[in-house]
Design a protein around this nucleic acid. Structure first.
Length: 357
DNA sequence: TTTATTTGACCCCA
DNA sequence: TGGGGTCAAATAAA
């Protein structure tokens, strides 16, 4: 009974993903200026819808497993603190402490190129508001605490912590906690209507002339790359993989970065994700999508090796590779091949000005 | 005036 | 008891 359900889900997942792939192909063929905007919008909507279905199915499956394991835990006589099962709806202001343990949490290491100019720091598609900063014992740099701006308006409990690495000041550790429950449609439209992302991206490329020829390819691939990468986001909590699909990969702390950390002053104000530093694309572009969960949000450093010539250190790579979570651990890790193929079969022109229009 | 950031104080937990 | 995380008043910026 349960098996047949799983088979059904698998088939549906494969069907939805295949459909998404076909739609993406169609969309690609409609990216000519002669093609109508409506057609493109429609196709885009259908693609997003497909992926949404997949995500919700995966989330549902995971939740079922979680609740099952919770039940079995109880049945085994283990004592589970009542705090850990307090629902968000019942929370009181002080319940934030009680929820700490239950909030999904994962860490991303992000390398940024400093020199943030008047344009201010990059955002990741979500609106974060800083609510605290703490000096951490043993750390040279303070840790910044951010929460979703929509905490009050929409009750979104997502938070993140940003801390500069001791060893490499250009490296930030971003720890996400909780998932976004807010709607980001407004942010999506902001990014869509704001050509700044394109500008920033071009600036990045401009500063990496050796990467210029790869620009189109890189830009085209990055969105799909994101999707693929999202299947293997670095996380501290194996149970929070689905959040990697909800969360964008990178968030830059709204706080200005101290000038003493500017080790690459010639670089643009774009934050460069570790590993993709020399790969010539900015996170802003990497997460065009980050403005809406419908898009392909993902961990950016995944598969950066594809582009070669990346100057991040071996140890950096090792660190990433040794992350607790890998694609192979992902329940949808098997899909990686499919997406991989899709990724490189298509030179998806995400850099098309109309794409985010 | 509104919104965001800073920062000291408070609370929880190991 | 001390460290980490959050609150909330004060302050700054838009």
């Amino acid at each position: 009974m349960e098996k047949s359900m799983e088979n059904f889900e698998q088939k549906t997942l494969i069907h939805e993903l295949s459909q998404g792939k076909e739609l993406a192909k169609k969309l690609m063929s409609h990216l000519h200026p002669s093609s109508s905007q409506e057609t493109r919008d429609l196709l885009l909507e259908q693609i997003l819808s497909s992926y949404e279905k997949v995500l919700s199915m995966l989330n549902h499956t995971k939740n079922m497993k979680e609740s099952n394991s919770l039940e079995s835990t109880h049945s085994l006589g283990h004592t589970t603190s009542p705090r850990s099962v307090i629902s968000d709806q019942q929370s009181t202001p002080r319940d934030v402490f009680k929820k700490r343990k239950t909030m999904p949490r994962w860490t991303e290491q992000v390398k940024v190129c400093l020199g943030t100019g008047p344009e201010g720091p990059l955002d990741d598609g979500y609106n974060w508001r800083k609510y605290g900063q703490k000096d951490i014992l043993g750390a040279n740099h303070p840790r910044g605490y951010y929460r979703c701006t929509h905490r009050n308006s929409q009750g979104c409990l997502a938070t993140k912590q940003v801390q500069k690495s001791d060893e490499d000041p250009s490296l930030f550790e971003v720890t996400y906690r909780g998932r976004h429950t807010c709607s980001r449609s407004s942010q999506l439209s902001n990014i869509a209507s704001n050509p700044q992302s394109q500008v920033k991206q071009e600036k990045t490329v401009h500063n990496f002339p050796q990467q210029q020829e790869e620009k189109n390819q890189t830009q085209s691939q990055s969105a799909l790359l994101n999707l693929k990468a999202g299947l293997g986001v670095k996380t501290e909590d194996l149970d929070t993989r689905e959040d990697s699909m909800i969360f964008p990969p990178f968030s830059f702390p709204p706080t200005p970065i101290e000038p003493d950390t500017v080790d690459t002053p010639f670089l643009p104000d774009a934050a460069i994700v570790e590993g993709s530093l020399a790969c010539g694309f900015s996170p802003r572009f990497l997460s065009p999508a980050t403005s809406d969960s419908n898009y392909f949000a993902a961990s950016p450093w995944h598969d950066f090796g594809t582009f070669g010539q990346c100057n991040s250190s071996e140890s950096d790579h090792a660190e990433i590779l040794s992350a607790p979570t890998s694609v192979t651990n992902s329940p949808i890790g098997d899909l990686d091949l499919t997406i991989d193929k899709l990724d490189f079969e298509l030179s998806f022109p995400f850099d098309s000005p109309e794409f985010f229009a």
